[in-house]
Amino acid sequence: MNYSIFITGSPTQSRACQSALSFAEAAIASGHTIQGVFLYEEAVLLANAFAMPPRDESNLRAEWVAFATEHNIPLKVCIAAAIRRGILNPAEAQRHELNHHNLSEGFELEGLGSFIDMSLGSDKVMRFK
């Protein structure tokens, strides 16, 4: 089965990002494939490179990026939802005339249409809220 993963739950207010990672790891381990991961609503905060968990806690963002890099899975972030919540890449920072940008490496800002494409290219969408 080829899955798309759609995460909308906040990385701090819900377990959505953790559960999605556990699911994705289990799916790959069982021989399934992951078309891509799309972050929407509060889940876009996972891509905030300025969010620093204490060193003796797990860094979910780093774990996601390592997993996605190893398995060549795109990590896409809804551009409108991200900008609304202060997650900007260099191009958006420039567009909004800001000196800083904080979209973590390993993530890309994309339109919601790219989620539609992703879901059409997969057998099932798993949503984590």
């Binding site: 609304r84 339109g111 989620f115 494409d117 059409l120």
Partner: peptide, 19 residues
Amino acid sequence: STAAKEALDLALVLGTFEQ
């Protein structure tokens, strides 16, 4: 919350993509 707004945004994009 922004949930209703973001839900409708998703609906509009689905419509735009002829889904």
